[in-house]
Structure formats: structure tokens, C-alpha cells
């Protein structure tokens, strides 16, 4: 499972949540922090929580965990080829972040992989169907892998309300149609889990718990 998308679309939070979800059905789950774009708010910050849930986290270690260097662990190649593992790749934002994915293309392309494009229609550069299409094409061109489906993630962080989600999701569905790919699921913050139920949406709802916190929360 590969999560790609524009910078700040929510890939990391979704990838973390998804790895926890996968651990329910797979004995061996690993998540790879392939983010060479962001200096803060990366998967590695949730490492202890994930390790506690018996999920392997591959990310730069020690003082290098705090660096902004394009560090890629040699372990990743082995994990990609290991059929025992359910592997989740959290890729850095935009086509720039997807460059690193192109590096592994040779090992990924013949596997049964699923590359998902995470879209938040409230982020700059993915606010309309044509913009989302352009982003998708740029990422496909750089990674030389195919996007299989869209993950709809319409939100304004703490200012999200039901209207935000509904409106954004409609736009994202239009973009998916244009790209001729399905919407795999819609992400909704779990604080809405009682208010927003499955019957409101055709696509499955994936409730998200936030792992990246600000120092005043």
C-alpha cells in the first residue's frame, strides 16, 4: 500500500491510522517513512506508539531522525520483496516527494501494489478537479507507478465541520471521475464518529485518530 499526494494532504496521519487498521488482519505490518520533504510532523514521531502496537517503523534513527536529509534505509528494499509483510509506504508530498518512489519502482511494479492518492480539496494546488488531475499526473510521471484510487480527505483541521466534509468530498469525487479511478474511502476525524455515519456516504468511511499533536493541545 503506497500513500502519495500533495504536500500537506494528510498522508502521514492516514498512513499511520491505516497501518493500525491493517495490523488487525495481518500478523506482520510495517510502515516506511519515505518523507524526504517535510522537516516536522513525520511518521517517525509516532514511532513509539506504533511499535507498542507491534507495527514495524522504518525511519532514520538517532540524531538523524531530526535531520532534513534524504535518508533511505537499505532495509526498505528487503521489506518490499518480503511477502510476509503488509507494507505501507508514506511518501513525501508532491512529485518532488514521489521521486524517492521512482527509485523503488523496479521492485514494486510487478507486485500486487495499491498506490492511493490522498486529496484534501482545501489545500492550495488541489482545490479543483483539473488541479487534482495535474497533481496525480505529476506524481505518476515521477514515480512511474499507477494511481489505483483516491483517498478523500476533505478537512480544515480543527475548523472542520460537516459542511466542510460534504462539500469537499463532492469536489474530490468529481476529480476521481476525471481521473477514472474510484474513491477508496473517505477520511473523517474520529471526533465526528457519532455525528457522521456511514449512511451519509456511498464510499466507506475511515475514521482517523490524530497522532501529530501541537504543544498546546
Amino acid at each position: 500500500m503506497i500513500f502519495v499526494g500533495s504536500f500537506g494532504s494528510g498522508k502521514t496521519e492516514i498512513a499511520i491510522n491505516y497501518s493500525i487498521y491493517c495490523r488487525k488482519s495481518y500478523a506482520k505490518v510495517a510502515i516506511v517513512d519515505l518523507d524526504i520533504v517535510n522537516p516536522y510532523f513525520r511518521t517517525r514521531e509516532a514511532k513509539d506508539t506504533l511499535n507498542f502496537k507491534d507495527i514495524k517503523v522504518i525511519a532514520p534513527e538517532g540524531e538523524m531522525a531530526y535531520a532534513d536529509l534524504p535518508l533511505i534505509s537499505p532495509e526498505i528494499k528487503g521489506l518490499i520483496q518480503n511477502p510476509d509483510y503488509c507494507l505501507i509506504l508514506d511518501v513525501g508530498g508532491d512529485d518532488v516527494g514521489a521521486v524517492v518512489l521512482g527509485n523503488f519502482r523496479y521492485f514494486i511494479k510487478d507486485l500486487d501494489y495499491e498506490m492511493l492518492l490522498v486529496v484534501n480539496s482545501y489545500r492550495p494546488f488541489t482545490q479543483s478537479a483539473p488541479q487534482i488531475k495535474q497533481m496525480a499526473q505529476e506524481i505518476e510521471n515521477t514515480s512511474r507507478l499507477k494511481i489505483k484510487a483516491i483517498v478523500s480527505n476533505p478537512n480544515l483541521s480543527s475548523q472542520t465541520d460537516e459542511e466542510t466534509i460534504k462539500k469537499g468530498h463532492i469536489l474530490i469525487k468529481q476529480a476521481a471521475q476525471k481521473l477514472e479511478v474510484p474513491v477508496k474511502f473517505i477520511c473523517i476525524d474520529d471526533r465526528f464518529s457519532k455525528k457522521i455515519r456511514q449512511e451519509n456516504f456511498k464510499e466507506p468511511i475511515f475514521y482517523i485518530k490524530r497522532f501529530m499533536h501541537l504543544p498546546w493541545n
Binding site: 517535510n38 522537516p39 510532523f41 483541521s157
Partner: peptide, 10 residues
């Protein structure tokens, strides 16, 4: 500072 530059808000 770095945090206000990196964090996301509406």
C-alpha cells in the same frame, strides 16, 4: 519559528 511555519491551520 519553525513550528508556526510548518504547522497547518485554516
Amino acid at each position: 519559528d519553525g513550528l508556526i511555519g510548518q504547522m497547518m491551520e485554516a
